[in-house]
């Protein structure tokens, strides 16, 4: 990104920040609509900038704009919606949009893994939001008040805007071999006339993962195991047996014992 366009990027980030600030929940009513409009404008500007800077030589793809826009606006809603359940729903939207974006980058396996894993994770989030929010009896006052939104927005957008402006200056980079090889348009990918031998993405991801990164895979498995143990240990309810119901009868005493199912 060259010259004045970088400043345009900064300006767009700043506008997005303002939109986010307006939409943040407040006790005296948020300007969510205004925020949405301005944010939509900022997102549109950002995408237009992307189109101008990156897409021009290759031609553009409408799906990128749609789903990038949806992802950004939904993300904005996640952090600004006063109701955590809606935040979770919008987050699902973010995940699905990102999954589509990944598919467009020929990362189908990653996209589906994303959906499967997040479907599980978000599902749990839903369940907890539902249970806890129901228990606390409606909207908590904590959700109505953002905490120092101005400072947070300034800090975050300055950091990310600067980094984005700096790092996305990729025109000078050579075209990658992958790009040359992967000439099929995104529309062709889901269709059946892709050669069978070019099993492609899943296969190559699997190969790379289990050849080059096999130790990391093991470590990831270990990490998951540790997390599972930790999660069980953390969330176990510690209730003394004598408080809630009688203690389980000692083995050998009369009682209905049946095989586990």
């Amino acid at each position: 990104m060259t010259g004045g366009l970088v400043y345009l990027l900064y300006v767009l980030f700043a506008v997005g920040g303002i939109a986010l600030y307006l939409a943040m929940p407040r006790t005296q009513g948020a300007h969510a609509k205004a925020g949405l409009v301005i944010g939509g404008g900022a997102v549109a500007g950002l995408l237009a900038l992307c189109a101008q800077v990156y897409m021009a030589p290759h031609g553009s793809n409408i799906f990128y704009y749609i789903f990038a826009g949806v992802a950004l606006l939904a993300a904005g809603r996640v952090v600004t919606h006063p109701n955590p359940t809606y935040s979770a729903v919008y987050f699902a939207l973010v995940v699905l949009s990102v999954a589509v974006l990944l598919v467009m980058q020929r990362a189908e396996f990653l996209a589906v893994a994303l959906v499967i894993i997040y479907a599980g994770a978000i599902l749990v989030t839903y369940a907890f939001v539902i249970m806890l929010a129901q228990q606390s009896g409606g909207g908590s006052s904590a959700d109505q008040r953002a905490r120092e939104p101005m400072l947070a927005i300034i800090a975050s957008f300055v950091v990310m805007g600067t980094i984005a402006g700096r790092v996305s200056d990729l025109r000078e980079l050579p075209n990658s071999p992958v790009e040359v090889q992967a000439t099929a348009d995104v529309m062709d990918v889901p269709l059946a006339d892709t050669p069978v031998k070019d099993a492609g993405n899943t296969l190559s991801v699997g190969r790379t993962m289990f050849n080059q990164y096999v130790v990391v895979v093991q470590l990831a498995g270990l990490l998951l195991l540790v997390a599972m143990v930790g999660a069980i240990a953390v969330s176990r309810k510690r209730i003394p047996a004598d408080e809630h119901g009688p203690p389980p009868p000692p083995p050998g005493e009369i009682g209905r014992t049946v095989p586990p199912f």
Partner: peptide, 22 residues
Amino acid sequence: ANPDIGLLYILGVGSMGVYGVV
């Protein structure tokens, strides 16, 4: 459609089936 990840697609879509219920 014949994507690379047909089976996983079914899994992913299936796992989202409960969203409506929730």
